Simulated scan of single mutants.
Amino acid sequence: MAELLSDGEIDAGLAERPGWRRSGDELSRTVESESFPAAIDLVRRVAEVAEELNHHPDIDIRWRKVTYRVTTHSAGGITQLDLDLVSKIDDLIAS
């Protein structure tokens, strides 16, 4: 099982990932795409990465805005798996 990160480790990880915020035991980011199809395409690409990592975000789609929420449910909080996933999501957003 993945180990929970300390508050300092989480803060340091978020400092490298602008746009993400911590809310309790999860990390979240809302992204607005240029169109609904573009938002869905990003979700599809995030889903592929999540499957590769076997670590899946909660995803809320509202027209062109998509909110990603990441936590390690099995550990009861934020782990390195979450920071790895948000980094990969950031790469997809940038591409």
Rank of each mutant, 00 (worst) to 15 (best):
E3W: 10
L5S: 01
D7Q: 07
E9A: 03
E9I: 00
I10S: 05
D11T: 13
D11A: 14
D11F: 12
D11W: 12
G13E: 01
G13C: 04
A15W: 03
E16G: 13
P18C: 13
P18H: 12
G19C: 13
W20D: 00
W20F: 06
R21P: 03
R21I: 13
R21F: 12
S23A: 08
S23Y: 12
G24R: 03
D25F: 06
L27M: 05
S28Y: 11
S28P: 08
S28E: 08
R29G: 03
T30V: 07
T30W: 01
T30S: 11
T30Q: 05
V31Q: 10
V31H: 13
E32A: 13
S33W: 04
S33Y: 05
E34C: 10
S35Q: 14
S35R: 07
F36G: 08
P37Y: 14
P37F: 15
A39T: 04
A39Q: 07
I40F: 09
I40Y: 07
I40Q: 13
L42S: 03
L42T: 05
V43K: 04
R45C: 15
R45Y: 15
V46A: 12
V46H: 09
V46G: 06
E48Q: 13
E48F: 12
V49L: 08
A50H: 04
A50Y: 05
A50L: 10
E51D: 14
E51M: 12
E52Y: 06
E52C: 10
L53P: 04
L53G: 10
N54M: 11
N54C: 15
N54T: 14
N54H: 11
N54G: 14
N54K: 14
H55L: 08
H56W: 06
D58K: 15
D58T: 08
I59K: 00
D60Y: 15
R62G: 02
R62H: 09
W63N: 12
W63C: 09
R64G: 03
R64A: 06
R64Q: 08
K65D: 15
V66H: 01
V66N: 02
T67W: 01
Y68M: 04
R69W: 05
V70Q: 01
T71R: 04
T71E: 05
T71H: 12
T71M: 05
H73V: 10
H73D: 11
A75I: 01
A75S: 15
G76K: 07
G76M: 04
G76L: 05
G76S: 04
G77M: 00
I78G: 03
Q80W: 02
L81W: 06
L81I: 05
L81P: 03
L81V: 08
D82Q: 00
L83W: 02
L83P: 02
D84Q: 08
L85Y: 02
L85T: 03
L85N: 04
V86P: 02
V86N: 00
S87L: 11
S87D: 11
I89D: 01
D90T: 11
D91T: 14
D91C: 13
A94W: 13
S95T: 13
